[in-house]
């Protein structure tokens, strides 16, 4: 089976700087597979998601490597074609449902606009599809929600709407960028279950960006651990939780809060481990500079 998304040797840097923020990142995802990207804040996990969806900030340049979406190299495409391909085959579940919906528009067009404007559906067909999706995300009163404005819905409801909107065009790839971070704990669980459910039903390839290893164990099949924009470990979820190979991954896993013993686990990652992984990243940088 060929991978739907392949990222090859992707490096990115801030405009005008030599220092890389993504360091030769490579991975691929098959249809129906969920890959977790984990790491601390600033490790570059969201940056990868943004690169795939073509929404990198203008200050960040891709300096090397390729992103193959459905076999097509995004970097080699014309911007308009790239936008269309991404819009038609990929989707984003954003981090903060409170800011990801346009406050001055009703819910309905925010779900259907991609179908109508980009994919050329009729308005009525798109509306039927939106109702169907709102049912799929277990919204009881889809008609009313479609006619609502975002401020009339709770955070959990808005995230459901955004998930429905993400799956509207039957995407082959969904990037979930910490989709539960902004929600409270009880809602988090429902939303995770929902994302998992829709992903399985539509056999979507999914990139799941998170810093929560607990979430990874529930949602993903494979994961990549990032430090400083470099993947330090690729592993299947089962192997990882049996015992990560990399020292940094082990430290990260040890730092995950446990409900049984909250005090003991709230420890920062050991400094020696950080130094070691930072040295590894710099060594890789040197090697890359000599190679390129």
């Amino acid at each position: 089976m060929t991978a739907f998304l392949t990222v090859n040797n992707l490096s990115a840097a801030l405009h005008g700087y030599e220092q890389r923020v993504l360091r030769s990142v490579s991975f691929s995802i098959d249809t129906g597979e969920v890959l977790g990207l984990v790491g601390e804040s600033g490790a570059g996990k969201s940056m990868i998601g943004k690169a795939i969806l073509g929404i990198l900030p203008s200050a960040v340049d891709i300096i090397e490597g390729e992103i193959l979406l459905d076999g097509q190299d995004l970097e080699k495409m014309k911007p308009a074609d790239r936008r269309r391909l991404i819009g038609a085959t990929a989707a984003l579940i954003p981090q903060d449902p409170l800011t990801a919906l346009n406050p001055s528009r009703r819910i309905e067009p925010q779900i259907t606009n991609r179908l109508v404007d980009i994919l050329g559906w009729t308005k009525s067909a798109a509306r039927v599809r939106a109702l169907e999706l709102l049912n799929e995300v277990h919204i009881d009163n889809p008609e009313r929600v479609m006619a609502s404005y975002p401020h009339e819905l709770s955070g959990g409801m808005r995230q459901r709407v955004l998930i429905a909107s993400a799956f509207a065009a039957n995407p082959k790839l969904v990037v979930a960028d910490e989709p539960t971070t902004a929600l409270d704990v009880t809602v988090q669980k429902q939303i995770l279950r929902l994302i998992r459910e829709l992903q399985a039903r539509h056999s979507t390839a999914m990139v799941f960006v998170t810093h929560d290893l607990g979430v990874v164990s529930k949602v993903c099949q494979r994961l990549s651990v990032l430090y400083g924009g470099k993947i330090v470990e690729n592993s299947s979820v089962a192997d990882f939780f049996d015992g990560p190979k990399h020292a940094y991954s082990r430290a990260l896993l040890a730092a995950t809060p446990k409900y049984t013993d909250p005090e003991a686990s709230l420890l920062p990652v050991d400094e020696a481990v950080i130094e070691a992984v930072a040295a590894e990243v710099l060594a890789a940088d040197r090697e890359w500079r000599h190679g390129g």
């Binding site: 929404i55 819009g87 990929a90 991609r114 404007d117 980009i118």
Partner: peptide, 17 residues
Amino acid sequence: HLDYVTLSRTKGYGENH
């Protein structure tokens, strides 16, 4: 720079829209 604007970019919309 707001999230809903970024989200609409991922849907395939161009800068003018």
